Amino acid sequence: MAEIPGWRDYYLGHDQAAHYAYGKRMLKAIALQFPSERRWILKGNQHSEQLPALMANYPDAYVVQTFRDPLAIL
Rank of each mutant, 00 (worst) to 15 (best):
Y10P: 00
M1Q: 14
A72D: 09
D15G: 00
A2T: 14
R38E: 10
P5E: 07
G23F: 03
E3Q: 13
A17R: 06
R25N: 14
D9L: 14
E37T: 07
L51M: 08
H19T: 09
A2C: 13
Y20I: 05
E3R: 15
I4M: 13
D60L: 04
A53R: 00
Q65P: 02
Y62M: 10
A29T: 07
Y10H: 13
Y20G: 02
A31W: 06
A72S: 08
M55P: 07
P52W: 01
P59V: 04
R8N: 11
L54Q: 02
Q16P: 01
E3C: 11
A17W: 00
R8H: 09
R25I: 09
M26Q: 10
N45L: 10
D15T: 01
L42T: 04
Q65N: 07
Y11C: 04
H47C: 05
L42P: 01
R39Y: 07
W7L: 14
D60F: 03
F67D: 10
A72I: 09
V64M: 12
S48F: 09
F67R: 12
S36L: 01
R38D: 06
F34N: 08
Q16L: 07
I30F: 14
Y62Q: 15
Y20Q: 01
Q65M: 12
K43N: 07
R8S: 10
V64A: 10
Q46H: 11
P5I: 07
F34E: 08
Q50K: 06
A53W: 03
M1V: 13
R8M: 12
M26I: 12
A2I: 11
R39V: 06
K28R: 15
A61P: 02
E37C: 05
L42A: 07
